[in-house]
Design a protein around this nucleic acid. Structure first.
Lengths: 286, 286
DNA sequence: GATCCTTGCAAATTATTTTCGTGATAAGTT
DNA sequence: AACTTATCACGAAAATAATTTGCAAGGATC
């Protein structure tokens, strides 16, 4: 699919010369993407044909195809390999954070289970009542975001970040209701309890969480969001951005499953347009 | 800087042949990025030299440089030109949203005022007390995010989304304090009032908002976040993602301005490691 | 010792760029 | 209005550069 994944997989099987080429890609990417095959060959101390063969090996048609592929994925793929910013210089820090965020989106997109999302969207669109559960700074934000997005389509929805409240809501929920729970860690046992309780009465439970986690196992429908973890505890923003995007996708698909949604949205839009005398229109963005 | 911006700017000045080349880029981008100069020339019904001249015109060294640039920016730049998803198919919707989000990050990165952010970071790092203000679904999230990030460095910080409370806090603030206010629209007049009030007592005010907006004009330091607006009211997620990234950058730079931050973070880390018997470590991610 | 893999050399092929010249258009001149 | 001149766009062909292929040598492995 993308060169960097292939490179990770093939790494062990590469010959010495090919390894030297790979090293240049990883270390001096800017050079690699701008160099001609001759320049690259010289720097890697190999012959041009070896470079061509290397390109074929990582799944490209030709050297120029390789460069295009490289340039295409590099923008988002690089940080995957270089986890720390080069320096404390504001420019480097900014670039590091931006690229990490874009990378998170990239990885999310690649690992997205569209069938699960579509299934979840259909259930949500038909639900008589929706509960959005999430606790902790990150997941509670996701829960309110869900509420924020879904009420606009005329759906009945409430968000809760309180475990006790979640349990009570889950206990009172009916089979026509849907619970959407978010857990970055997948280890929110309180959420698991709510899910288990709700499923006894036939409530549909949807989880936004790590695949195969405790929370995932407790839910009817799982929208898995698996991002490279590691340092993520100290840098949670990129993970959160991925979750936000996932909610955005889910909400958009819900809208397509609701015939009236277009009408409701149009009404909101007209109201906004009618209102916008003093550019008030923008105020609703805050 | 990137081809698509240049193309937008140069569009009017292009000759008929060059316009045909540009059209192919915009309509059949996949072809363009994979084609040789001859194939591209044939499709545009021009001669290869014309293609070379076109590449130079849009700021590239050569045709191959052009293709690399194209491939590089295309990943994020395409949605700029094609604002709607191709279909309602989940895959297309997902791709549309992801690309829009990445595009927002891309544009943020390009328009970032690093000097302002660095200046803001220094002020925040030295402040005796920090107030994070923001109202409405979007900006209030940014305010709590700021609190969430800054308290970890041992800073004194509180977030408020309540206009009345903001006014009172602003009135009581001292010259050693800092107010950070967020307004997506830049037209939050209540926030302007708080800023104005606070500045009377020499409080440093920092705004995350649109450049040249009302809020921007009322603040000491402006971290401008200007994204192509248009449909953004109905698709606020990508703008929010950009704001989140901006906060992330700001917070990281604050950390570098605080000598003890590393110590505090290390202590948190050690606590986490000590705690992680049952992989509890991950729980804090929620 | 046979086989397979890796690699570089040189030739062949292909792609790209430069040079140069033609024709068109626009502006200025008589 | 007709002519001249300048400027520009564009393509043909030549020149150059880059890339690929075929082949053979060297080295590792069985």
């Amino acid at each position: 699919m993308d060169i960097f994944s292939t490179l990770q997989e093939e790494k062990a099987r590469l010959s010495p010369s090919e390894t030297r080429i790979a090293d240049i890609l990883l270390n001096d990417f800017e050079f690699a993407v701008n160099a001609s095959i001759i320049e690259l060959a010289e720097k890697a101390d190999v012959s041009p044909p070896t470079v061509t063969r290397f390109c074929r090996r990582v799944g490209c048609e030709s050297f120029s195809d390789f460069k295009v592929q490289l340039a295409r994925t590099a923008y988002v793929g690089m940080r995957y390999l270089r986890p720390e910013p080069k320096s404390r210089d504001p420019g480097d820090v900014a670039q590091d954070i931006i690229t990490k965020a874009q990378n998170a989106l990239f990885l999310l997109h690649r690992s997205l289970d569209l069938a699960a999302i579509e299934q979840a969207a259909e259930k949500i669109a038909k639900a008589e009542m929706i509960y959005a559960f999430g606790s902790g700074g990150n997941s509670s934000m996701i829960a309110s975001e869900l509420q924020n997005r879904l009420f606009r389509f005329g759906l009945h929805v409430t968000a809760s970040s309180d475990h006790g409240m979640q349990l009570m809501l889950a206990a009172a929920a009916k089979s026509t209701h849907v619970i959407v729970g978010s857990s970055f860690s997948g280890r929110n046992t309180e959420l698991v309890r709510s899910f288990t309780l709700a499923r006894e009465t036939g409530v549909t439970t949807i989880a936004l969480t790590q695949a195969d986690s405790l929370v995932a196992k407790a839910a009817d429908i799982v929208i898995p969001i698996d991002l490279a973890e590691g340092n993520n505890i100290f840098r949670p923003t990129s993970t959160r951005i991925a979750y936000l995007a996932a909610v955005d996708i889910l909400a958009s698909l819900v809208a397509y499953n609701i015939p009236q949604a277009a009408v409701t949205l149009r009404r909101i839009k007209q109201q906004l347009v009618a209102h916008r005398d003093g550019d008030d229109r923008q105020l609703l963005g805050d």
